[in-house]
Amino acid sequence: MRESSSAWVRNRNIVRHTPKTLGSVSQSVILGVLVLVVGLIYVTQGTKATSYDYELSKVENDIAKLEAEKEDLAVERARLTSIARSDSNEVAANMQVGQVAGYAE
């Protein structure tokens, strides 16, 4: 008896399965690319951090400079308002000495 062969035919696997593997060259290239990418990321991050460090260093230098200027100004202010300075000041020297009045006798 002849069975209909269409069922068999219909279900038969018409795709040929063959194992697909990367060759050794491709593997090496991909590995190399991955290492390169990771390396680049590392270098980029490192450079980024370093650039921040430079920026930080510049800001710190600016702060130090401004602080030094502030200190200079504070010293100058103290010198200008010192008693020694006002004693030798011409305007102060020409001021009339105050007279205390109104004490009970």
Binding site: E71, D72, A74, V75, A78
Partner: peptide, 9 residues
């Protein structure tokens, strides 16, 4: 208070 001894770079 007034400063009478300071530091200068």
């Amino acid at each position: 208070p007034v400063v009478v001894v300071m530091n200068e770079k």
